[in-house]
Design a protein around this nucleic acid. Sequence first.
DNA 1: TAGTGGTCTAGACCACCAA
DNA 2: TGGTGGTCTAGACCACTAC
Lengths: 226, 226
Amino acid sequence: MTGWQDIEAEVLRRIHARDWPPGSAIPHEAALAVEFGVARATVNRALQSLAEAGWLDRRRKAGTRVALHPVRKATLVIPIIRAEIEATERVYGYRLLDRRMAVPQDHVARHLRLVTPLLHVAALHMADAAPYAHEDRWINPGAVPQVMAVDLSVDNANEWLVANAPFTHGDYAIAAVTASAQMALQVGADHGTALVTVERSTWNGEVPITWVRLTFAPGHRIRAAF
Amino acid sequence: MTGWQDIEAEVLRRIHARDWPPGSAIPHEAALAVEFGVARATVNRALQSLAEAGWLDRRRKAGTRVALHPVRKATLVIPIIRAEIEATERVYGYRLLDRRMAVPQDHVARHLRLVTPLLHVAALHMADAAPYAHEDRWINPGAVPQVMAVDLSVDNANEWLVANAPFTHGDYAIAAVTASAQMALQVGADHGTALVTVERSTWNGEVPITWVRLTFAPGHRIRAAF
DNA sequence: TAGTGGTCTAGACCACCAA
DNA sequence: TGGTGGTCTAGACCACTAC
């Protein structure tokens, strides 16, 4: 009846109720284990979960304290664009705009720490035949040589890479840009409209895989909950 | 020598190395426990961690499989603006622009499910005396009556609420807007510039606490790693 | 219904670090 | 240096669900 999630909920209740105000120390694990009538490992599991969520600060010997600034974290899911569109009952569409080997622009080269020619891909993702997002991508063929043989007018790079290019980590940046004349045309916006962009790069250890900038159609919102 | 994090690393290595390709089943906990020479609980800890990170799909009876689409999650830290600015060695500044009771705009009222008058606050956050972000906030005095007595020209609402208004959850939306003439003036942009906005609402159980929209100065980027 | 993951226990030892 | 959290173990029972 008393699982670690019950204990987590009760501790969180006490934090919210200010029984244990921010900055204060809470009883140590052994004491809570006695109070709740469970093994210490069970309390430990609950408190670790709360610490990971940012509610508690735990240090050996110093004990456990309620976080002063509950640093909440919102989790952004990095989606497959097709899935994101189909989740809202719309029909996904895709069109390849460009595919060529080229030396990357400075900011891409610097970010990926590569100056060799890369595979450049431009494409458009559509929802119910309306533009959804423009994709501007550079792929490192040194990391995924097989990509050169893929017909990217059929398989889109987004999905092919997810399925075929393992990565260990990456980074993510969201910004706002004013639509250029060309981009306005692509995403169905008026010239000068503000658009959301997401830039992402992924790595496999020290090897850069790809850099991509998605420019979304006007009105796009990136949502998260916490 | 063999802790759960070592096992996590080894499993992740096998996933990256395609020893266990996406979609394939991996050995069950008991088998891995034997292979690594540890207790099943230790293997369980490692696999749970990987499942939470999105690398594995686990279901009772069905076993554990490598995720087909490694749904990576980027973690957005929700910052105290002062801390964000001071982290880059700049001097934080704050100016209250407006404070009054008012009936909220439609979209705010709908979002918070409240039609009563709320406390409206407008303020400017600065970094080294340059505009950093404009804050447009509505606070529910029914949830935090003490806020009415706070001198918001000294204590900024952002920090006061974090320290004094416990919340259980919230939501988050990022968008791009074209700077209005007035907003352009506030954040030091040209009229028509694209600006990043972040809208956030927080709740304490069923009780809405506050809705806020931050409009950042031109060029602002929201970053995350994964 | 049986196989798999989810969790609990009681005890133990260790790592860290504030006092 | 002692108190605290971090982790491991061996065993157990339970919950879920594919078959």
